[in-house]
Nucleic acid binder design. Structure first.
Length: 952
RNA sequence: GCGGGGGUAGCAAAGCCUGGCCAAAUGCGCAGGACUUAAGAUCCUGUCUCUUAGUGAGUUCGAGGGUUCAAAUCCCUUCCCCCGCACCA
């Protein structure tokens, strides 16, 4: 067996030594292809592998087609995850340490050394420094034809300077805005919280919810109740407060609000003018004026009220809240409590449900009905939560507001919700408040709440004229497949203000306030252009001060005179010119191959950014690939089903991976890694290798029949067309499986000399067409074959359309069918020791008949009409009923009509030619006669292309 | 909820746009055979059901209807699954 790893290593080394993929401007058509760079957060896995492997296959194809190909790749380090790794190690998080130890140990053996490296990871930059070279290695071992000289990370000076330039431009044009924005925040840590910063944040996401604060006039103060259902104000019957909780007068602006202490603390992170004054006096049994309802309602004791949700004051709507209904019912029966708080029993008894929302399922008292239907006994019933959700869902989607709701009568709940909220706020009867969707804590244990930042920077995609420009870019971009265009349009519509700076993370400092870091998707939108010049920047050791705004104005925009640009940047004219020319030569990015999930963020931002700054060089074509799963599930650390590129290297090798991942499914579908399938891919790659090797040994000049020329050229043609369209699965199917089939066919049918000539005819092309997908195996074979130079650079084989001969392939297929029929009949025939096989060729008139029928059937399927028209011919009339039967039969089974019309004579010749071979194969004497000369009953059942068989 | 994608034989996965040659490519698995001392690899044959000296019948492409001479493919209804819904890479 061939050692895949050895072959891969050998050729990767040779490619590197000959700088095969390091290209400069040339007098040749260029092709610049990119795929998004990976984010540094651990080892690369097959998900990363998919996008680069697919991109590489296409890059290699284009290279063989004669293009000067550029395929560069960088690395994304911006944002919080790398920081998270460092912080976790710093905090002694064992899981993280274990994970990274394992990873480092793949490269370093010495235990002490490993510990030292892990220790160094407390500095985020060290994480990056360690990972980048390893990742380049891991990618390289996949056989990527990447020009690594041009590589950078988003933390590199050149990238940062480019992004700084970009944001200054945004500001100039007026695309940057500043304003309020709610974020998840941990007061103890003093930081905004991303998913990674929150305990279990990845498995149980924390969301920001906007609550409505209802203001209940209470003397000169307001009691503040928080609700997620402002549309239910018309059904309020009472307020609940927790008798165990202390309530405070809180000065908010000029007015005094009443709420619990925790709520005031939260509120103080959302608005500046919050100040706790004093304890509020007794509330239970008193009345407050309910907004919306515009009536006084009573304040009742509710020990169930959670002071850590909302304000600690809850408004009660028994009509639509099963919980309120139950609590109220419980209280009515609870004499002890009523006495304890000196409540008037009668007053509570008289509280009546106010219907406000009507649904088909629950009528207009959903709270009551749901509780009764489910036999809820009291407020502690665990089913209540579930029922509440069900009632809410039903009401929200199907409910209509009743006439109690005044001007909102007849409105759907989903609409009324927003309308009523707006009205209350407008009338100063309500305000808003943000709460987390669940209780959450940061990794260091501090509570996570929602804070409102008042100086958040945004990119405003709704800035005047920007969207129109972006749509133009979209129109000019080819999409593969086109069906994604609608998604882009949706995404474009939906894009609004995007916060583009954060307080934490690695990245580029926000140019107008250095405390902020540019957010990590916003900083990765125009970097394709940087690939065109980055190696020049590095070679000439340009410094931060050189790469100032003038540098990019000149190189990317050509907006300055060379002289002036050189003066302003301190870069020599030669180098500047070299950058500009390289940029102009390689731009635009001809093709970008990406994961489909990037559509609504990265790819959309990319188009907007280009529309704003570099409209002439926007990427011209975008293709998509699907998700990667493993053994039927999403890859995740916790499941332990992640397949890394290191695993790939260890167990399979580059070519097998490349073949497997592009053959198992179409490019846009989800790919599911199955170890079993990977194993069989291995066999297939080995098989190609063996087959070609065998051919190389055997090949010899000679004559090749038109059938094999035809079959081979057809495969070549289809291979080329599919690969051009980046339909990699279909391409593999031809270049690998159909070629293997063809070789099998040749081995089974050709004489030794013919086979040698056949090999000689196909081998050069075959090695070439597998080269994009299995480049190492191809190089190895190419060397064996005696090909010139690298096959990676060899010209793509041309097919000869004129050699594709449908008819001879059809005739060949008749032979295959005949063999099948013979085997079948031999098995079924109860003839012991059969000696003779008679092949009865169909009567001559049937050939004419089929020809005519084939034409007629195109016009009509009406049996009567066809029969009439065919019976006009004397020769058919003679056959009488048999013709009618045949017409019937063929209409029902159109596959009986031969694809190609051959004559009786031609069929006879075909059989005669194969007589000997068949005779040998089945060890039978074979006789061939025409139906006209046979008196066998079977003779009638013979059809053109399908002789009747007789075994004796 | 909104938006997008999908449900095909034991499994994976084509076909669907542009209806007929579709009992449905291909790969895996499985069964039988060849080769082999044997295993593996490889090769050949088969793999919805029934039937048969073959080229016949029946039931299939999530479910139910419809259009059509003809539907996996077009239309309607319905069930189920997956993904995205932003500040997160």
């Amino acid at each position: 067996m061939v050692d895949q790893t050895k072959i891969a290593g050998k050729w990767q080394k040779k490619w590197k030594e000959s700088k095969l993929f390091e290209k400069e401007k040339e007098n040749k058509e260029k092709f610049f292809i990119t795929t998004p760079y990976p984010y540094i957060s651990g080892s690369l896995h097959i998900g990363h592998g998919r996008s680069v492997a697919e991109t590489d296959i296409y890059a290699r194809y284009k290279r063989m087609k004669g293009y000067n190909v550029l395929f560069p790749l960088g690395f994304h380090i911006t944002g919080t995850p790398v920081l998270g790794i460092s912080a976790a190690i710093e905090n002694g998080d064992e899981k993280t340490i274990k994970t990274y130890k394992k990873y480092v140990s793949a490269y370093v053996e010495d235990e002490e050394e490993i510990n030292k490296i892990i220790e160094s990871f407390k500095d985020p930059q060290k994480v990056v420094d360690f990972f980048i070279p390893k990742m380049i290695d891991e990618y390289t071992q996949l056989g990527l034809s990447v020009d690594w000289r041009r590589s950078f990370t988003t933390g590199d000076m050149s990238h940062q300077q480019m992004v700084t330039w970009q944001f200054k431009k945004y500001k100039e044009i007026g695309y940057l805005k500043q304003g309020e924005y709610p974020v998840l925040y941990c007061p103890q840590d003093g930081n905004a919280m991303g998913e990674d910063d929150i305990k279990d944040g990845d498995s149980d996401a924390v969301e920001k919810q906007e609550w409505t604060l209802l203001k209940f006039k209470f003397g000169d103060k307001y009691l503040i109740a928080a609700t997620l259902r402002p549309e239910t104000v018309y059904g309020q019957t009472n307020l609940w407060i927790n008798p165990e909780v202390t309530y405070y007068d809180v000065k908010v602006g000029q007015t005094t609000w009443v709420m619990c202490e925790k709520a005031a603390w939260k509120l103080s992170h959302q608005r500046k003018d919050v100040e706790i004054k004093q304890k509020t006096g007794e509330l239970i049994g008193k009345k407050a004026f309910a907004p919306g309802l515009e009536k006084e309602i009573i304040i009742l004791p509710g020990p169930f009220v959670d002071p850590d949700r909302g304000t600690g004051i809850v408004t009660s709507v028994p009509s639509d809240a099963p919980f309120d209904y139950t609590a109220l019912r419980d209280l009515k029966n609870d004499k002890k409590t009523i006495e304890k708080y000196n409540l008037k029993r009668e007053e509570i008894e008289n509280i009546e449900i106010i219907p406000i929302i009507k649904t088909e399922k629950y009528g207009d008292k959903a709270g009551l009905k749901a509780v009764e239907e489910n036999n809820i006994e009291n407020q502690h019933d665990k089913k209540l939560t579930e029922i509440t959700q069900e009632v809410y869902r039903e009401g929200f989607h199907k409910g209509i507001m009743t006439k109690t709701c005044g001007e909102f009568e007849g409105m759907t709940v989903s609409k009324a919700k927003e309308a009523i909220k707006k009205k209350l706020i407008r009338e100063n009867k309500a305000s808003t408040f943000f709460e987390t969707s669940r209780k959450a804590y940061s990794r260091s244990g501090g509570e996570v709440i929602v804070a409102v930042l008042d100086d958040q920077w945004f990119i405003d995609f709704n800035s005047k004229g920007w969207k129109e420009k972006a749509y133009k870019i979209l129109e000019n971009t080819e999409l593969k497949p086109e069906s994604y265009r609608k998604n882009f349009e949706e995404a474009f519509e939906w894009l609004d203000k995007r916060p583009c700076a954060r307080k934490r993370g690695l990245g580029t400092k926000f140019p107008f306030n250095k405390e902020w870091i540019i957010e990590s998707l916003s900083d990765s939108t125009i970097y394709m252009s940087l690939y065109t010049i980055n190696h020049i920047v590095k070679e000439n050791n340009l410094k931060r001060e050189n790469l100032n705004d003038s540098f990019f104005d000149y190189v990317f925009k050509g907006e300055l005179e060379l002289e002036k640009a050189s003066e302003e940047t301190g870069v020599s004219k030669d180098v500047l010119k070299q950058c500009r020319e390289s940029f102009e030569y390689w731009s635009p990015n001809d093709h970008r191959h990406t994961f489909e999930l990037h559509l609504s963020n990265h790819l959309s931002f990319m188009m907007f950014a280009h529309a704003a700054l570099l409209p002439d060089v926007h990427p011209r074509k975008i293709s998509f690939h699907g998700l990667v799963m493993s053994e039927g599930g999403k890859m995740s650390k916790s499941k332990g089903n992640t397949v890394t590129l290191l695993d790939v290297k260890k167990y399979y090798g580059a070519d097998i991976f490349r073949f497997y991942i592009t053959n198992a499914t179409t490019i846009e579908s989800t790919f599911d890694w199955q170890q079993k399938e990977a194993e069989s891919a291995k066999k297939t790659v080995e098989k190609i290798f063996e087959e070609i090797k065998e051919g190389i040994e055997k090949r010899k000049e000679g004559k090749v029949s038109s059938l094999y020329k035809s079959k081979y050229n057809r495969i070549l043609k289809e291979t080329t067309l599919y690969l051009e369209e980046m339909k990699l699965r279909e391409y593999n199917h031809r270049a690998v499986f159909e070629m293997i089939h063809l070789v099998k066919h040749a081995k089974n049918n050709l004489e030794e000399d013919e086979l040698k000539a056949f090999y000689n005819y196909i081998l050069e092309g075959w090695i070439k067409i597998i080269s994009p997908v299995t480049p190492h195996v191809a190089e190895e074979l190419w060397e064996n074959y005696g090909g010139e130079g690298f096959v990676s650079e060899a010209p793509w084989p041309k097919y000869d359309e004129s050699l594709i001969d449908e008819k001879s392939e059809y005739i060949d297929s008749l032979k295959e069918k005949l063999k099948k029929d013979i085997s079948e009949v031999l098995e079924l025939a109860k003839v012991e020791n059969p000696k003779k096989l008679t092949l009865i060729i169909s009567s001559s008139w049937k050939y004419d008949f089929m020809k005519i029928l084939k034409e007629k059937i195109k016009e009509t399927r009406d049996q009567g009409v066809i029969t009439k028209e065919i019976m006009v011919e004397e020769s058919f009339k003679k056959q009488g009923k048999e013709v009618v039967k045949l017409i019937q039969d063929c209409l029902k089974h159109p596959n009986k009509i031969p694809e190609y019309s051959i004559s009786q004579e031609e069929e006879k010749q075909l059989l005669e030619k194969n007589k000997k071979q068949l005779s040998q194969a089945y060890n039978l004497e074979i006789e061939i006669i025409q139906a006209e000369n046979s008196n066998q009953g079977k003779a009638k059942s013979a059809l053109p292309g399908k002789p009747a068989l007789l075994v004796e």
